[in-house]
Amino acid sequence: MFPRRGGSGSQGSDRFEYLQALVTEFQDTDSQEAKEQVLANLANFSYNPANYEHLRRLQVPDLFLDMLTEDQENLVEYGMGGLCNLCLDKVNKAYILQNRGVELVTGCLSSPREETVLSAITALMYLVTPAARSQITAPPVVECMVRFSLSENKRLSNLAEVFLQDYCSPEQLERARSLQEHSALGIPLPRD
């Protein structure tokens, strides 16, 4: 699934150097295209837990968080995908939560891109800890999930359903549904 460099023996250091080269190119390049490609590479590398140590050393989680406020939709999508891929790890999770992660990810729920929104929902679920739960299941987020759960888009409605069923209390649900009824019409859903 990912490009593999070097032999299987000394892979650790090879992989680190390769990731380092990617990060360096991302920072140095002026080409928007190259930036997107490299970011997508890094996001895909974030899928494999074996890379987490390297990615942390290179401050890639930070890089992804920075991308969430970019104007370029591609950068947001890839950055969000990367975060979704690495946020389950305890160390990464703690780091993201400390650095306004929930706020930034919640912002992505209103993205027009399907993949960005899906990654954001999954990331929010994966970021839930006893401490962060209240922030993640804040009323506006739950409302948003209720809307998503009614979507025609099966992927979106499934994820929203899981979010509502598994991470929200019945009271929260009740409240969000009642709010839904007399407001919240016309808030745009993500386009495909």
């Binding site: 895909n44 999508e77 890839y78 979704c84 999954t122 992927r155």
Partner: peptide
């Protein structure tokens, strides 16, 4: 160029 996540 595509990012694979568990959602995909």
């Amino acid at each position: 160029v595509r990012v694979y996540t568990i959602n995909l």
